[in-house]
Amino acid sequence: MYAGSEGIPINKAPNNSMVRIVRPGSDRLIDLGLMSGSIVKVLISMPCGPVLVQREDGSVIVLDADTASNTFVTIISAPEPARHRHRWRRGWRP
């Protein structure tokens, strides 16, 4: 739905999405418990920039821009985009 088997860089994943790591961007991520197959929540991601993710145990990991760009993930779930609601004469409608 969101990406092919190679995945997308983690800093392209939307905020608050759950992702599965396909390929960690550096050996250091493995030492931080982020390996192929690990599931993490992307807290904040900036395109081409650093990313904050939350491990399954709750710890928050900061990925620098280079590591984030080289870390490929597949998105498991992403938050629904906010729908704009317009005020009509008779109350709120989607």
Partner: peptide, 8 residues
Amino acid sequence: SVPYSYTL
């Protein structure tokens, strides 16, 4: 340049 990833 070294990866600068760490736990918050």
